[in-house]
Design a protein around this nucleic acid. Structure first.
Lengths: 138, 138
DNA sequence: TTCTATCTTTGTATTCATTACATTTTAATT
DNA sequence: AATTAAAATGTAATGAATACAAAGATAGAA
């Protein structure tokens, strides 16, 4: 369950120096695959790291995304969300509770980039929305 | 080019009472298919409607989206963007200039909803990102 | 037409995520 | 230990979006 060693390895693989704060954030992302917001990460880590600054969480996720260690999701109009799983998969956001879920096992063709002369595409995001079962009441 | 009559018709089709402001916003969306932000719409209309309030633009687009007359795009982390074309198509955002472009003629399968017991899906958004040709310098 | 009720618009104030930036702390090297 | 660079911190500022109360417009009934 504790994956500090894995975090260190993963950070080094992405040329990110594993400071205490970065390791804590990475541990959190690896153990909580809920596409957390900056605030959720910050609040979760605060109890064990009282001196942690929210700016550090912002900086940390910026560098994670920049180095390709983490994916930033633009699916929730309120906040940015972060996903430790950078493999090809889609997401679902519930319009009622706002939770974001992974959708795996879609055809790989969905994630291919169309060949267009006008643009150089290097990422795709597939986002479904609707109501989750919990919010629908069963 | 002036589409006020079309706007009225389109608004009524979606059960939206065509006030002066709503008609102006709808005209703008029909004539400027650039996925504008609230601010862009507001600034464009201001010269001809000096008393227009930005809150009205927010209210107006909220009702347009609620009634299915317009699609709200979550693709630009800075602002919401609005698209008068509610048919199935994808978008591309340039990471450099921030402009959002339509991508038509993709396979219709891309826009089908996966059948999942956990969620009731009622919308999909396919967003590509990268660099546009203008920003790449040719 | 006038009255009334409802809908729409307006302006201000507030919230809150994100960014900017200067300062302090930490880590690595000589 | 001294030096330097990198990282973390805290505060202030920005700006999109929302809340809300007041003013204005519209439609229907009397």
């Amino acid at each position: 369950m504790l994956t500090t060693l894995e975090s260190h390895k993963y950070l080094r693989q992405h040329s990110i120096k594993p400071s205490v704060q970065r390791t804590a954030v990475m541990d959190y992302l690896m153990n909580n695959r809920t596409h957390p917001t900056i605030d959720e990460i910050y609040l979760a880590l605060c109890p064990n790291m009282p001196t942690l600054s929210k700016t550090t969480v912002y900086n940390t996720l910026d560098i994670f995304v920049e180095r390709g260690a983490v994916r930033a999701l633009v699916i929730d109009e309120k906040n940015a969300r972060y996903d430790i799983d950078v493999s090809a998969h889609a997401h679902f956001i519930c319009r009622s509770c706002g939770k974001v879920h992974d959708i795996f096992n879609l055809k790989s063709e969905l994630f291919e980039f169309p060949k267009l002369s006008r643009f150089s595409i290097n990422a795709v995001e597939i986002s479904y929305s609707g109501i989750c079962d919990k919010c629908k009441g069963n």
